Computed example of a mutant assay.
Amino acid sequence: MIAPRFRPWFVSLVLTVGLNAWGQAPAPSPPKPVAVEQLQKAWSAVVQVNARAIEGAPSAATLGKIRRGSGVVIGPDDLILTIAYLVTETEQLNIRTQDQKTYPARVVASDSATGLALLRPLYPLTAVAPVALGQASLSDVGQTFAVASGEAGDTMSPARLMDVRNFTGYWEYHLDTALYASPPIGNHSGAGLFNTQGELVGIGSLLMQDIMPASDPRSLPGNMFVPTELLGPYLQDMLATGSSPKSNRPWLGINAVERSGRIQITRVTPRSPADLAGLTAGAFVLSLDGEPLSSLALFYKKVWAKPLGPGVFELTVQERGETRQLQLEIRDRNQTIQKPAGI
């Protein structure tokens, strides 16, 4: 297989001119200078990640037994940053560089709070230099960035940063700050979002049909990226313990969505606290420990604010027109995740 080529003239052109052809308004400020050499270095640092779920891992039911995505080399010791769901409860991990060389690897850290994970190959990478981490903020909305995945045949492509706002996921996940860019790429899991100086500002998490805020009348498909600046305060903890202190928090074992201003359970993980308490899909959550809940984000934050240790949550739900009181055990999410040797 022939390795994809980095096309500096193409990257320079699209990042400098912008993405007006995508049907978006011109950037509110002049495009930033493009450092083609740094972008080429960034493209070379993106690797493909392949993983197989641990036999019997609960996450295999929703994330799949075989997973493939991307990661980006960020450390001089070949440390790779990727998205956590790609490697959660996995083993038989390997990475493939842009020159099509394959290396066995291991999970160094997987953090449920940030949604980020760290990997390291078992052997030194050949001629792959790490990239620097950067930041993107509201002042960068409208600017053009570059997206790259480790999928064979993919090239670096332009994407415009459309918004910076919070994100709440149905799987007990919340970010106070997330990056939303368009047009979307299909191979988004763990893909790198780079500024025009080749700094890594985001790691690909989701493909969304509409990334625009509710206040914006436009509907635009795109990707949500986890900001890499979330790694900074927790890097040393993740290297030392396999996760950040924020991930040591209670877990219910649910998927939930907001519908018409109400929180509805869409899935209950088998043998989770929610399952053992008798919570079922379709139920509406009315209150937690007697406090009404106005949003899914508030629900999650109240759960996470509860101290770990012996105790229960008092959950009031409505199911088929009947109101019920359930007691859910307080359980540490990190203690429920199956981990391969070495983490």
Rank of each mutant, 00 (worst) to 15 (best):
Pro8Tyr: 04
Trp9Gln: 15
Val11Lys: 09
Leu19Cys: 14
Leu19Ser: 13
Trp22Asp: 13
Pro26Tyr: 06
Pro26Gly: 08
Pro33Phe: 05
Val36Asp: 08
Glu37Met: 13
Glu37Leu: 14
Gln40Cys: 11
Ala45Phe: 03
Ala45Tyr: 03
Ala53Phe: 09
Ala53Ile: 12
Ile54Phe: 03
Glu55Ser: 12
Pro58Asn: 08
Leu63Arg: 08
Lys65Glu: 15
Arg67Ser: 11
Arg67Lys: 11
Arg68Ile: 13
Arg68Pro: 10
Arg68Ala: 15
Val72Trp: 01
Val72Pro: 05
Val73Met: 02
Ile74Ser: 01
Pro76Val: 06
Leu79Glu: 01
Leu86Cys: 12
Gln92Asp: 15
Gln92Met: 12
Asn94Met: 05
Asp99Asn: 11
Lys101Ile: 12
Tyr103Asp: 06
Tyr103His: 09
Ala113Phe: 06
Gly115Asp: 02
Leu116Phe: 07
Ala129Pro: 04
Ala129Leu: 13
Pro130Cys: 04
Pro130Ala: 04
Val131Leu: 00
Leu133Cys: 06
Ser137Lys: 06
Ser139Tyr: 13
Asp140Gly: 13
Gly142Phe: 10
Thr144Tyr: 10
Val147Met: 14
Met156Tyr: 11
Val164Cys: 11
Thr168Gln: 08
Tyr170Asn: 15
Trp171Thr: 12
Tyr173Thr: 12
Tyr173Leu: 10
His174Gln: 15
Asp176Phe: 07
Ala178Lys: 02
Tyr180Lys: 03
Ala181Glu: 07
Pro183Leu: 07
Asn187His: 15
His188Asn: 14
Ala191His: 07
Leu193Asp: 01
Phe194Ala: 07
Glu199Ala: 04
Glu199Ser: 07
Val201Cys: 09
Ser205Ile: 02
Met212Leu: 11
Pro213His: 06
Phe225Asp: 02
Pro227Asn: 04
Pro233Glu: 00
Tyr234Pro: 03
Gly253Tyr: 01
Asn255Gln: 14
Asn255Gly: 13
Val257Pro: 07
Val257Thr: 09
Gly261Lys: 00
Arg262Met: 02
Ile263Trp: 00
Arg267Ile: 09
Thr269Arg: 06
Ala274Glu: 00
Val285Ile: 13
Leu286Ala: 01
Leu286Tyr: 01
Ser287Val: 02
Leu288Lys: 00
Glu291Tyr: 08
Pro292Met: 08
Leu293Asp: 01
Ser294Leu: 14
Ser295Pro: 13
Ser295His: 07
Lys301His: 09
Ala305Arg: 03
Lys306Pro: 12
Pro307Met: 05
Leu308Phe: 00
Val317Trp: 02
Glu322Phe: 05
Glu322Lys: 06
Asp332Thr: 02
Asp332Pro: 02
Arg333Leu: 15
Gly342His: 12
